[in-house]
Design a protein around this nucleic acid. Structure first.
Ligand SMILES: [Mn+2]
Ligand SMILES: [Mn+2]
Ligand SMILES: [Zn+2]
Ligand SMILES: [Zn+2]
Lengths: 143, 143
DNA sequence: TTCCTAAATAAGAATTGTTACTATTTAGTA
DNA sequence: TACTAAATAGTAACAATTCTTATTTAGGAA
């Protein structure tokens, strides 16, 4: 984790007018220092080593606040509940970030994207899936 | 939902040696007949209209079994718990379908993919995110 | 067809991930 | 140093999913 990330965090949090508690510093320091996309429980266990009385609730609240402030993001479309797809043909998704609507689309080009060389070292790529995120027509109208 | 999908389902389930219960038929019929990526509770409510005593547990078990058999899939990486990402630079992910490991990679080309015309009618695309799925080096070694 | 048995089910309890409540503490300010 | 709104710790509540167990049923055998 770079000093620059920490500085940017302090800056953004000051902007949004929230208090700079040491719980928040340590939680951000933890997640900013790793590249493995951890879950809340993992962050909690690690931060607890330095801040033994921190509560799991604070970890959740802080992560949610950091996301709101645009300092971190979450994997997947939304977090809500597991959603199923009976379309087993190769296809891709347009996802509305407002309402969560997920529509299928087909694109030969996206089915076989050129795999960047960095990724070749990570493992064997079997499928590529593109998620185009934006605002659906319906949400845009009702705005 | 086409008769062909139903036939393929019956075929695959026979292959995997499970019983062809009418709960399973109705649950598959329901999900195969829609394109909106529903969650388990939605499937449950709809199937219940035709099969009033079906249990939510059966819906979960059946969806999980159908996924195992390769007849359906789920959205997102593995929605067991929410995972966080402190990397706010535009980037993409290599995801191991075996262990769930998710690694960042960068690719200018993927940041601005040509949006297919079908998608233009769905809404305004703001970001594109590519998920390359496969087996990570570590999982491949330990196999 | 009838019978048998392992597999599947319904109902409800348990578990797990996440959020809410509330008394106490603290950051930021004066 | 003292004040106050915001944040926290601890715990309870909640919601999604999975487990337990008694009962039912699909598929095969007689
Ligand atoms: Mn789909
Ligand atoms: Mn990432
Ligand atoms: Zn929308
Ligand atoms: Zn792996």
């Amino acid at each position: 984790m770079s000093e620059q990330m920490m500085a940017e965090m302090l800056e953004k949090l000051r902007e949004s007018g929230v208090k700079l508690t040491h719980q928040r510093m340590e939680i951000f320091r933890e997640i900013a220092g790793r590249t493995d996309h951890p879950d809340a429980a993992t962050i909690y266990e690690c931060v607890r080593k330095r801040l033994p009385t921190v509560s799991l609730d604070t970890v959740y609240r802080t992560l949610s606040m950091l996301k709101e402030a645009g300092l971190i993001s979450t994997l997947g479309p939304n977090q809500d509940r597991l959603r199923f797809d009976a379309n087993i043909a190769p296809h891709h998704h347009f996802v509305c970030t407002k309402c969560g609507k997920t529509e299928d689309f087909y694109c030969e080009e996206f089915n076989a994207l050129r795999v960047p060389s960095d990724v070749l070292n990570m493992g064997i790529v079997e499928h590529s899936h593109v998620e185009l995120r934006g605002i659906c027509s319906e949400c845009r109208r009702s705005n």
